[in-house]
Amino acid sequence: MRKSVIVLSIIVLLLPIWTGCVQKRILEELGLVVVVGYDPAEKDRIKGTALLHQIDPAAKEKVQVVVTNANTSKGLRNAQNREVSKRVVSGQLRVAIYNEKLARNGIITLADTLSRDSVISDTIFLTVSRGSTENIITHRFPEISNIGTYLHKMLRQNIQGEQISSCTLHEFIHDVYSVGKDPVLPVIERIGDQILLNHTVLFRNDKMVGELSTDEAFVLKLIRDRYKAGSLEISLDAEPFRQLKPGFQGNKVDIVIENISSSSQIKLADPSIPSFSIRIKMNVRIQEVSTDLKLGEKKVIRAFESEISKEFVRRIQKLIAKTQAVQSDPIGFGEVYHSKVRHSNLTDEKWREMYPNAKVQVDIKTVMVRSGVVE
């Protein structure tokens, strides 16, 4: 009995050592992928560019870039391991970039592979590049030491600042496989030593079919999400303000609205057409005006509220027409239709035929909460 107790005690003492040996991972021996880019290569192959972060005090460079070709993303990983001295791992992946040409042909196989990798977070950001992703990742930026970390922070702060819609891997995969809704992704572009984030691309399922300007992407987010904070410069028709300011010259009034808080509601009005109604309520502050108007007067405030509402109705109708022309539904009207019409048996193919003929009534109520600076 005493002998058994001694043996058991030895096993208990050695167990943490054995466990530690199994789970031990030496960071100095790993190449941590921070950002990966995909470009089309010859013979329908894929060119992969990965930036590896090295945790090694002895290393002269803290990052290493590896460019390889393969037929699949897993093939790229195997090729990367054959070209570096450290084992490549994806647990720190933050951003995946897809070349615009690749995005036009479909990227679901590449994105789906990422989502199935248990070590990769589904909160990584996906983007589309204007031009080669290799040209972005391999470039030596004088003010940026790690382009992967920089891109992640850049995308995160623009999402938090509500300048662009969220673009995580989880959201992209969800919208691709969801009947009646299509994904959108931001576009990054390198010009010299600058990285620009100016556009948003429309997808039909997983294929890029169109593009939105910054202002159009703002309007899309206004419909899809709730704003808590935001900023936008817009031009209003000057005619309603001529009566408020005698001698007013010019055809437009330029204003900057900030601190936008909004809520939107989409309803199915008539399933036979189909027709929808969008109701949006916005609270805004006018930060700057290009002409001298007395923002303390109620009639001036009412004029601004009315004209801001009209301008956004116009922009929303223009945006919807643009998405209908390319048969892409980033707003999710199809999801609303599918959830409200029983036994609709809605499919992607059926909704692609219905959506271009859909009618949308837009109603916006704008409330000016306070005014800011007059130019």
Rank of each mutant, 00 (worst) to 15 (best):
V7Y: 15
M154N: 12
G192Y: 03
R315L: 08
V66E: 10
H53M: 14
K74P: 07
S275K: 04
V66Q: 10
E375S: 13
E239F: 14
N135T: 01
D117K: 03
P356S: 03
K252L: 09
D56A: 04
Q249A: 14
I120K: 10
Q64T: 03
L232F: 09
L51T: 03
D206P: 06
H53K: 14
E143Q: 15
H139T: 01
N78Y: 13
L126I: 05
K245Q: 01
N81A: 01
I26T: 08
E162R: 02
L197I: 01
K207G: 00
M354P: 05
K298D: 04
L114T: 05
L155M: 12
V7P: 10
T109W: 14
V184E: 06
D215L: 12
K60T: 05
Q287K: 14
N345L: 05
V289G: 05
K281C: 04
A96L: 04
F203P: 08
L346E: 04
I364C: 07
D44K: 14
V209Y: 06
C167M: 05
V95H: 08
D363P: 13
K86P: 06
T347Q: 07
S85M: 09
T347D: 06
D348Q: 13
V360K: 09
S235M: 15
R190E: 03
K310M: 04
N158G: 09
L295A: 00
N198V: 02
V362K: 09
P330F: 00
I55P: 15
H139A: 06
Y98H: 11
P183E: 02
P186A: 00
V362W: 06
L51C: 06
A217K: 14
A269S: 12
S263K: 14
T366C: 08
E258F: 05
L197G: 05
D329G: 08
H152Y: 15
A303N: 01
E297I: 00
T123Q: 15
I147T: 08
I107K: 09
S235C: 15
Q23P: 07
I46G: 12
F333M: 04
T138S: 13
S213F: 02
L220T: 00
V367A: 15
H170G: 08
S73C: 09
Q163S: 09
T214G: 07
D292A: 01
A41L: 01
V128K: 12
N357C: 05
R2P: 11
